[in-house]
Every structure is written in C-alpha cells, then in structure tokens.
C-alpha cells in the first residue's frame, strides 16, 4: 500500500528561548497533512542537518530570531551539500533584515518569510516546492 507523506523538519537555532513562531508553523503544517519533525531550541546547523538526514525529510524550516541567520543558513546549505542532500528544500522565517535576504537566497535557501507572513503563504510555498 502506497502511503506518501511529506516530511518536514522544523528547527530553532540560536541562543534565544522563543520557539513560538516555529511551533505555530509546525502545528499549521500538521493541520494541513504534513508530518513535522520538531527538534526544539538551540539547534546547531550540524544537529539540524543530521536530524534531517536521519529523518529523511523533504524540507527543513528554520526559524531565527537571534540574528544568527547569516551564519546558520549558509552553514546548513554547506552541510547538506556535503552529505549529499542537495534535494532537501530549505526555507526559513524570522527577523531577517531586508538586505540580508538576497545573499541568503543565493546560497540555495528557497524562501525566507518575514514576521507576519500569512500562514497560507507558507502552505502555498510548500505545495509548490515540496509537495
């Protein structure tokens, strides 16, 4: 019996203790039929990528608030490449200054959502880019 389900890892790197945004997205995706693997707070890029590898996910969503985005996203993209996981779709959200977005997208990140983005937009992105 075929049972295809899209699996998404939601991670929260950095030192701050706020994962409300990440949890809201996780719940929303669950309500729309996705299997969400939640990894919790304070995740390093290496922890995120290894978890994504073991969980065989189709996508990784990263929530940043602590201003570490210029380190976290490129590092995750680099590790994914090293592990042979180029096919995993990476997206993110949080407080990322406008001018930082294009260089991050250039590293292969598929989308970055600013705070206040309607969740429907995230869903539309998922449906179009992941499944």
């Amino acid at each position: 019996m075929k049972q295809k389900k899209v699996r998404v890892l939601i991670a929260k790197p950095g030192l701050d203790g706020h994962d409300r945004g990440a949890k809201v997205v996780a719940r929303f995706l669950q309500e729309n039929g996705y299997e969400v693997i939640y990894t919790g707070l304070h995740q390093s890029p290496e922890q995120i990528v290894n978890a994504a590898l073991q969980e065989a996910v189709d996508a990784i969503g990263i929530s940043v608030l602590s201003g570490s985005h210029n380190y976290v996203f490129p590092e995750v993209m680099k590790l994914l490449k090293e592990r042979g996981m180029d096919d995993v779709v990476v997206f993110g959200g949080g407080t990322i200054p406008e001018e930082d977005i294009p260089p991050l997208l250039a590293t292969g990140v598929k989308a970055l959502f600013r705070p206040g983005t309607p969740l429907e937009e995230v869903l539309e992105f998922m449906r179009e880019n992941v499944g």
Binding site: A26, N32, V36, I37, Y38, G40, A51, E55
Partner: peptide, 26 residues
C-alpha cells in the same frame, strides 16, 4: 483529521544528533 503529525520525541534526544553512533527516526 488531517493525516499530519507533529513528531516531538526527538526534542529530548537532540544532544545525540552529532554522535555517529546514534540514529534516531521518528
């Protein structure tokens, strides 16, 4: 209802995510 799931067991085990001798699958 949705067929989706939130798999959160891993949260408690993430310290082992960088240990090559451990493999966690939700």
């Amino acid at each position: 209802f949705s067929g989706g799931a939130i798999l959160g067991d891993r949260v408690r085990m993430q310290r082992h995510a960088t240990d090559p001798g451990v493999f966690v699958r939700s």
